[in-house]
Simulated scan of single mutants.
Amino acid sequence: MIEQPTPIDPRVGGQGFDDLLRTVEELDTPDGFKAELIRGKIVVSPWSKLRYLRPMRALRRQLEEYAPEGHIADSTPFLFSFPAVERAYGPDLFVVEEAAFDADGRHADAEALSLVAEFTSTSTKDADWHEKLNVYGQLVPVCLVVDMQDREITCFSDPSSGGYRARWAASFGKPLKVPGPFDCEIDTTAF
């Protein structure tokens, strides 16, 4: 596999969203890769680099402390479905209602998410800043884009049908305010 995300076109004749989602869930991706449904295509991209571990762990630990009641913070490769826009993403880090994992399926409903965080890489930066941000901005209360190349974290909040209405950023090493339902300040010195 190469460093760049690899799109897989649906079969000739087209598949519906449910069929594509099932295909994504059943893919046997190589170790270190994840599959998502982006722009109507199955995209296989590499999992985060080793140097991303510390900032991911630092962010997860801080968010766990302020997560809404009944929500958990994790960075395991779970898929969240956005059926209204026919997308399914596996955020690098997420905070979600723990009850979302009571189902038998292989993907969770994105409506259970209270926060997502995407850690950019050269192969995923475009999708993280555009495609995913537009979709998250219609539903997920808080989105953090951790730009590992520009060494900056941006917080988006107040979702609407047109996307997020609020945005602010901090360079690594500076604190970042995260609004409700978290109402906390993130220490980015470990980033």
Score class of each variant (00 low, 15 high):
130 H>K: 09
106 R>H: 13
40 G>K: 11
44 V>A: 10
23 T>W: 06
87 R>W: 02
15 Q>N: 14
58 A>T: 05
94 F>S: 10
88 A>W: 04
146 V>I: 11
6 T>S: 09
23 T>R: 09
102 D>V: 00
129 W>S: 00
93 L>Q: 10
188 T>Y: 02
175 P>H: 00
104 D>W: 11
99 A>F: 02
169 A>G: 08
123 S>T: 08
14 G>Y: 13
19 D>M: 06
188 T>I: 03
173 G>N: 02
174 K>M: 04
90 G>A: 15
136 Y>I: 04
175 P>L: 01
184 C>E: 03
165 R>D: 08
77 P>V: 04
167 R>V: 04
18 D>L: 14
170 A>M: 00
14 G>R: 14
160 S>H: 09
158 D>Q: 15
1 M>D: 12
145 V>T: 07
128 D>E: 05
128 D>M: 07
4 Q>M: 06
178 V>H: 01
89 Y>C: 07
172 F>H: 04
111 E>M: 06
92 D>M: 08
189 T>A: 11
163 G>P: 13
142 V>T: 10
87 R>P: 00
3 E>I: 07
61 R>T: 01
40 G>F: 06
36 E>W: 13
2 I>W: 11
138 Q>G: 15
178 V>Y: 01
115 L>M: 13
25 E>V: 04
34 K>D: 07
84 A>C: 04
87 R>S: 13
180 G>E: 15
158 D>G: 09
175 P>Y: 00
159 P>Q: 06
20 L>F: 12
130 H>L: 09
11 R>G: 03
107 H>A: 15
34 K>T: 12
167 R>G: 00
140 V>W: 07
81 S>M: 00
146 V>L: 02
164 Y>P: 07
78 F>I: 09
87 R>V: 03
123 S>H: 05
74 D>L: 07
62 Q>M: 01
91 P>C: 12
21 L>D: 11
183 D>F: 03
16 G>R: 13
91 P>D: 11
42 I>V: 14
156 F>N: 13
185 E>N: 00
153 I>F: 02
48 S>E: 10
110 A>E: 07
13 G>M: 12
64 E>V: 02
68 P>Y: 08
14 G>N: 13
29 T>D: 02
69 E>G: 01
33 F>R: 14
86 E>Y: 00
176 L>Y: 03
152 E>H: 10
158 D>L: 11
147 D>T: 05
85 V>Q: 15
48 S>Q: 14
66 Y>G: 02
175 P>A: 00
136 Y>H: 09
106 R>A: 11
